[in-house]
């Protein structure tokens, strides 16, 4: 009789003591928090549609009206500047970080930890603190390089290091790079050829992910640009918000939508398939 009792209670216990909360509770929590998080986004859309008489597309169409060209020129200038900065940061990731990471993995395995440490420093040092030390370096390098955009791009290359390094690392770990390189080398391929014909194609997922996350970081950067007096997208959005808050909100929405697309693509490609030789 006692066995029956124990069995019965054990079954009841197991049924009611699954880890997961009850479905109605879980759904309520998620719906409430989801709505709270949707609210600012809805508010931004509504705000951008406000007109003097009600709601309309006035502010959206006004953006591309030639009559407003002069007023919005700094904004589009900032956009071009930020895209250029993103390109420079991507160039650094592909031409400097990637070869260095591969070289360290292939020839200097003892330095792997050192490289990992270097690439996380930009997370540990807040941008607002780093800018104190960047200001004199910016001043000195601009005298040599003579282009504020290029110097700021070099600085942004540092800012994206933690994110880009992680993306590259994940795709390098998924492939047996040493074997591929040795195979290609023994068949007579030169180093540049190995890099362009073997490594770039095999690691393309990681490279695309690293580039996209770099674009996302650079397009959102405000701290360093504003304190070094550079006009990038975010600095331009802030300065136009004082005279035209609607356009500032529209650009924020567009930037958010763009970054969402970039991160969605990264999410798609970040799950590496086991097919390595599908070149």
């Amino acid at each position: 009789m006692s066995t029956v009792k124990t069995l019965g209670s054990a079954r009841r216990v197991r049924a009611s003591h699954s880890l997961a909360p009850r479905r109605p509770f879980a759904t309520t929590v998620l719906v409430v928090i989801g709505l709270l998080f949707a609210l600012p986004l809805i508010a931004m859309v509504e705000f951008s549609l406000r007109t003097t008489t009600g709601h309309g597309l006035e502010h959206w169409t006004g953006l591309f009206d030639p009559a407003n060209e002069f007023r919005y020129r700094p904004l589009f200038g900032g956009l071009v500047e930020s895209l250029t900065l993103a390109l420079i940061a991507i160039a650094i990731v592909i031409l400097m970080l990637l070869p260095t990471t591969l070289l360290v993995r292939l020839r200097f395995p003892k330095l792997v930890r050192v490289l990992e440490f270097i690439t996380v420093i930009p997370i540990a040092i807040p941008a607002i603190a780093l800018v104190v030390g960047l200001a004199p370096v910016f001043g000195a390098s601009i005298r040599i390089i003579n282009s504020g955009t290029v110097v700021l791009g070099l600085i942004y290359g540092i800012l994206v290091l933690p994110f880009a390094a992680r993306a590259l690392d994940a795709s390098i770990r998924a492939v047996d790079v040493p074997t591929l390189v040795e195979a290609a080398r023994s068949l007579g391929a030169s180093w540049p050829r190995v890099f362009v014909r073997i490594l770039l194609p095999v690691l393309r997922r990681g490279i695309v992910a690293a580039s996209f996350i770099s674009i996302a970081v650079v397009l959102g950067e405000y701290t360093i640009a504003s304190l070094l007096n550079r006009q990038n997208l975010q600095v331009a959005i802030v300065s136009i918000s004082r005279s035209d808050p609607y356009v500032a909100v529209i650009f924020s929405l567009l930037a958010l939508a763009f970054v969402t697309v970039l991160l969605a693509v990264i999410g798609r490609i970040a799950t590496p398939k086991r097919k390595v030789f599908d070149v």
């Binding site: 998080f37 931004m44 959005i237 909100v249 970054v259």
Partner: peptide, 24 residues
């Protein structure tokens, strides 16, 4: 992962549009 990245000035405008003086 998108919202954790959504910092910066855009976030400020999102909240000005929501709970600013003229916010929704």
């Amino acid at each position: 992962s998108v919202l954790a990245q959504f910092g910066g000035v855009m976030l400020a405008f999102a909240f000005i549009a929501t709970i600013g003086v003229q916010g929704l």
